[in-house]
Design a binder for these strands. Structure first.
Lengths: 225, 225
DNA sequence: TCTTTTATGTCATTGAATTGTCACATAAAA
DNA sequence: TTTTATGTGACAATTCAATGACATAAAAGA
């Protein structure tokens, strides 16, 4: 049950920073760099929470806010460069749930988002997540998120990745993997592991190097360098 | 599993000293001698902890600290020549996690680093590492680190080095090595050992003397003198 | 049920890394 | 100086992992 977050921010560096933080928390991320696109993404993806910059090209944050509020009560956090009180008041009137003034600490932003989600009952307590770099596995929901995007894994791929992530930096021999993933009574080619690793790496795209080959032995998952 | 540490210090003697101490602890080490390079190294390598001198060429430690803090909460320990209280206060405001005043004992620095890492949950307790000088082998991840840098070993090289490191200062005859590394049923030239030793020594570069020849017998791994 | 899609295992091929052997150089011991 | 042991470079044989193709099995859908 990955939580969907829409990040609306035109400055790409900042957007990327925010994305990185939330991707590590296992959020499913959607991004827009202008207000028009934001509304489209909002309508199509129904995020659980929106982070919205005020200064935007095309349509400004206020207008986006108003439009969103016409049909929904989704929590919205506004980003503003100015810290003037009047802005805040105006925003709250329009229905913003919280505020953060640039420059801000990404940790504070994450905390605010979590607080809002808790208030709206979206966050479950029993989540069981493991993150390695931008790769997050949620053991309770069996979901894997890479860089804010949901990864579609087959059962074997999931089991294998799950084992490796739960044992980051531990090298497993092919036989160990066969035992732990395929089952102790599996009798088959150890090369089967290779094939599943190959398919996993394909899905990990440019994070594929996280699964490292230990020649003459097996595989290991480690941080991307 | 190897913890990444970024050491930012312009005085090369001191940097080397720090490096040696942390390499013995099995850290993965990155070094910078000025603030500009430090920021680049920080962004590319995502260290788990940063040791940061205040007086630096190009960009000073304060500025580096501020930049780092814009996007991350990584633990930072600052090195300062002066011990004035105001410096410390200023540093803490910027988000430094700890302080150490020159001249300092490297042991104290290592202790502080470990404490911070424990606090941030980076250190695991049951790591399976053996260190001899600046050479560290991590048996669970099958990684070998020399002087903070990852060593790329072939399977035979790894097995051989692993045996020698687990039995530091014990001399093995060629036949024993053949048995223990190549397998009890291996029948081949005992000189094969020599070749693998040669390849290992090459990779150990100026630490090659750690593998000592026991004339008329075999080999032994000991401290570099 | 039958069909279609997806997941999985096997296998052959390819290219690269590893390894063992040998010949010769060098060093140590006799 | 001779003998013996070890270091080293080159080469060929071997092993190994990656990959693509295919066949079968399982699941989903009609």
């Amino acid at each position: 049950m990955a939580i969907k977050i829409l990040i609306v921010e035109d400055e790409s560096r900042l957007r990327k920073l925010i994305r990185d933080y939330f991707s590590k928390e296992g959020f499913d991320i959607f991004e827009s760099e202008d207000g028009k696109d934001a509304l489209v993404k909002y309508d199509t993806n129904h995020p659980d929470i929106v982070i919205l910059d005020i200064m935007l090209p095309e349509i400004d944050g206020w207008t986006v806010m108003k439009r969103i509020r016409q049909g929904s009560n989704v929590p919205v956090i506004m980003l503003t460069a100015r810290s003037e009180e009047e802005d805040k008041l105006f925003g709250y009137e329009l229905g913003a749930d919280d505020y953060i003034t640039k420059p801000f600490s990404p940790k504070v932003l994450v905390a605010k988002v979590k607080a809002l989600l808790k208030r709206s009952g979206k966050i479950k307590v029993d989540e069981n997540k493991i993150a390695v770099n931008e790769l997050v596995i949620d053991l309770s929901s069996h979901k894997v998120i890479l860089n804010g995007k949901h990864l579609e894994l087959s059962p074997k791929e999931y089991d294998l990745l799950s084992l490796l992530m739960q044992n980051k930096d531990i090298a497993f021999s092919r036989d160990e993997l066969l035992n732990k993933v395929w089952g102790y009574d599996y009798f088959g080619d150890a090369r089967t592991v290779d094939t599943t690793i190959k398919r996993l790496r394909n899905k990990l795209e440019n994070y594929s190097e996280m699964i490292q080959t230990v020649r003459g032995y097996g595989y290991r998952l480690s941080d991307k360098k």
